[in-house]
Amino acid sequence: MRGLFRYEQKETIIHNIDPRVKLIWVFSVSTLTITAGVPWVLLAIFLSTLPFWALLRPSREKVTSVAFVLFTMVFGFMVSQSLFYYWGDTPTFTIIPAHVPVIGTLTGGIHIYIEGAMYGFIQSFRFMASVSAALLLVATTHPSELIAGLVRFIRIGKRHFGFPSEIAFMVSSAVSFAPSMIEESLITINAMQVRGLNMKGITNKIIALKYLFFPLVINILRSGRQMAIAADSRAFRATKNRTYLNELKLGQGDYIFLSYIFVFISTGLYLSFIGYGGTVPGI
C-alpha cells in the first residue's frame, strides 16, 4: 500500500501539465460530484478520470492499491447507508430488534436495507470521482511542485496569490518527514518488542500505541528544533519577496487542458441545472 500515495516519476502528458491546472481539475471534479445527482452522471464523472489514469500508465502495484482504496470506499458507503437509509420497504435483515432493551429502545432497532446499500453504492461515486482525481494529481505531481502551485496559485500584476511560503515550507517538511516518522515508529515498536512488549491482539496493540506515543513526540520536538535551526541558518523568512528556482508558467498543453476543464465543468453544471442535478433526498 505504500505505493498508493507515492509520486510516480515518469514522462507522460499528464505529468507535464502544470500542477495548478491539475488542482483546478481536481476542484472541478469535486464540485461536480456535489452538484450532480443522477446516477449515470455520477458514474460519468468518475469514468471521466480514468482516461487520465490510462495516460499515466500506472504500475500494477499502483492499480491494485487504487482499486483497493476505491473498493473500500464503496464498501464503506454501502454499509453505512444500508444501516441508515430509512426509505426502504422492509429491512433485509435485522441486526438489533427494536425490542432489545437499551440499544433497541434507543436506536429504534438497527436494520439492514438492501435499498440503502444500493443507494450507498450510487453515492460512493461522488467520493470515488474526487479521490480518483486527487490520487492522480498526487501520482503525477511531485510534492514540491504541488506546494509551489499552492503558494503561487495565481499571479495578478507582480503579486502571487496562494498559501504563504511558510505554510508551503511546513507542508513540504511534513511531507518529507511523514515517511521517516512512520519508519521511526516501526523502529520504536521493534525496540519495545525486543524488550518484551506483547503485540498480539488488539488490546495489546492499543497498549503498544501508548508506549509508542511519547518517544515519537520527543523525536518530533528534537527534529523540529534541528530543522528550524537549519532553515534559519539558510535565511528562511529573511525577506518577504523571495524568488524561486523554478517559475511556473502555463504552456500550450496546459491551455488545452484548461479548455477541457472549462467544457467539462460547464457541461456538468448545465446538466445539473437542467435536471440531472441532485436534490438532496431527505434534506
Binding site: 511546513m170 517538511s173 511534513a174 518527514f177 518530533i220 527534529s223 528550524a228
Partner: peptide, 13 residues
Amino acid sequence: TRHLMMISLFGTA
C-alpha cells in the same frame, strides 16, 4: 521558525 516546525511536525504526527 521553530514554532512553525513544531506545529508542522505535530500536524505530521
